[in-house]
Amino acid sequence: MTAPTSAERKACWEARDQLWLCLDNNNDKIESCQKFQSDFEAKCPAQWVKYFTKRRSFLKYKDKMEAEGFSPAEGSRENS
């Protein structure tokens, strides 16, 4: 199996960015972005689809951490 070419990589990244934009605009509801999801799956190798899907949740988690900081679990909160 040969690696994607430069053009194939770019097509995949564009499809990914379109899907992510749609998910950002639709509160991550995949139902609203089916068209972009299937385009993404068509243009990227299956491994990359898995990788980018995991990467998106990681990036979202990271952004959340940076924006809100670490919040301790419910139980450890002190009553004042």
């Binding site: 199996m1 190798p45 299956a46 491994q47 898995k50 990788y51």
Partner: peptide
């Protein structure tokens, strides 16, 4: 590896 033999 996945079914295509592809891996990261």
């Amino acid at each position: 590896k996945d079914e295509d033999g592809d891996y990261i």
